[in-house]
Design a protein around this nucleic acid. Sequence first.
DNA 1: TACAAATTTAGAATAATTATAAATAAAAGC
DNA 2: GCTTTTATTTATAATTATTCTAAATTTGTA
Lengths: 148, 148
Amino acid sequence: MSNPSTLTTSLQKAGMRVTPQRVAICELLANSHEHPTAAMIYEELKPRFSSLSLATVYNTLDALVTLGAVNVLGHAGDDTVHYDADTEPHVNLACISCSRIIDIPSEHVTHLDAEITAASGYKLLGARVLYYGLCPECQKKQIEITRN
Amino acid sequence: MSNPSTLTTSLQKAGMRVTPQRVAICELLANSHEHPTAAMIYEELKPRFSSLSLATVYNTLDALVTLGAVNVLGHAGDDTVHYDADTEPHVNLACISCSRIIDIPSEHVTHLDAEITAASGYKLLGARVLYYGLCPECQKKQIEITRN
DNA sequence: TACAAATTTAGAATAATTATAAATAAAAGC
DNA sequence: GCTTTTATTTATAATTATTCTAAATTTGTA
């Protein structure tokens, strides 16, 4: 849950048009805790924009990522890339069985940005701090499967 | 550059056979700083194993990841997944233009594992601490392109 | 040596993502 | 307001990383 206008203004600053589709994608990203994939965004917006194309979703996501306004978390047990509009330093925790991603607050990540910039000379665009494993529920299921 | 036998023994412990192909894949992973992709591993080993199949590389990587012996870093500007045999806490830094990934030492990441395990109840299998941006060389190139 | 189980292989299949070209919408100039 | 230009969206085709499948091979065991 971050500020939707942060995303749209970053498009605007880059000289890109703020179209209804882009606004909707930005809002959905900003209001979501789900770390959605392109397909999830597409499905959620289809009812409102009946002619929406997946290509538009991908294009908008790419633009936001290149501008550093959205982070690419990568796969989470599925084959699809998850995105995160919350660029404040935090830890993402994925379950590779049910492919859900949750946020974990952490004091330590807040220092990484400065540390890396100082050490590397890179121009940082985003972060992917994602730990993965099995959530408590999927651990239970695994044990049940093993028993059979 | 980690210990190759760590990888092979983790396969062994899981009841899997330690075949020549798997040994070669483990050695390559352990001796590499390149954070290789499946295709890179395949190409490097092809000369030695003329009949090597990409499926074998993917299968072995999947097994190692599931066992927590290798980390999946995800995409790095290309469309291919990069792997890291160094599971000691550290920061990976990718350039999304040339798709190279380097390591950055960091005091802060060493604490994350414990912090996350304590807070979540997840069974952790791996970490993906990857920052991305533009390396110094690619920043120069970008500026040259912009000038034209 | 012979048997059973695991693994490798080659190639086909899948599906996420990207590219293309036409249609549409928005901005700028007049 | 109309025209021109440019950016964007859309639908669809193309690409390609990865997974699946079934046959062939290898390995471990007795």
